[in-house]
Amino acid sequence: MSAAHWIVAGLLALFHLYAGGLKAVRSRERLRPMMAWVDGMPMAAVRAIGGVEVLGAIGLVLPRLTGVAPWLVQVAAVGFAVLQVSAIGVHLRMGDRQVALNALLLLTAVVAGGLAAVS
């Protein structure tokens, strides 16, 4: 596997592992300063999104690392792309126009998926 893929997938996995872990364990009050959108969603949904992010982060790295079902890396990358498109929609619906981070994460997921396909 190429070094470029490991760098891109690794950074994307670290970001989502951290963000997903926060969503999975922190209270609404502790998430609000970083993620104002949590007020508009049930905490069960926030926790589910956190769990999906943690599982996706594992899916970006573990299959290639172990050699078991390496195609799952592309599935995880597509899942993160869908997650970010949805996140942009939520932000825009709530009147929050600060979607640059989500757009960057979307682009990173697409690149990670593409690099996984060619390596």
Rank of each mutant, 00 (worst) to 15 (best):
A3P: 05
A3D: 10
W6Q: 13
I7W: 11
I7M: 09
V8A: 07
V8S: 05
G10Q: 02
L11M: 11
L11W: 03
L11H: 04
L12M: 13
L14G: 13
H16W: 13
Y18C: 00
L22D: 05
A24N: 01
V25L: 05
R26A: 12
R26N: 06
S27H: 02
S27V: 02
R30P: 00
L31P: 13
R32G: 01
M34H: 14
M35S: 12
V38F: 12
V38I: 14
M41G: 00
P42T: 03
P42L: 03
P42D: 15
M43P: 00
M43H: 01
A44N: 04
A45L: 15
R47I: 03
A48W: 12
A48D: 04
I49D: 08
I49S: 15
I49C: 10
G50L: 07
V54T: 01
L60Q: 09
L62C: 00
T66N: 03
T66I: 01
G67C: 11
V68G: 02
V68M: 04
A69Q: 04
V73I: 04
V73S: 14
Q74G: 14
Q74C: 07
V75L: 13
V75Q: 00
A77W: 03
V78C: 08
F80I: 00
Q84F: 15
S86M: 13
V90L: 15
D96Q: 13
R97C: 01
Q98D: 15
V99W: 14
V99T: 13
A100K: 06
N102T: 01
N102F: 12
A103S: 07
L105E: 03
L105N: 03
L105I: 05
L107E: 03
V110G: 02
V110A: 10
V111Y: 09
G113Y: 06
L115I: 10
A116P: 09
A116C: 05
A116Y: 11
A117P: 01
V118A: 08
S119P: 08
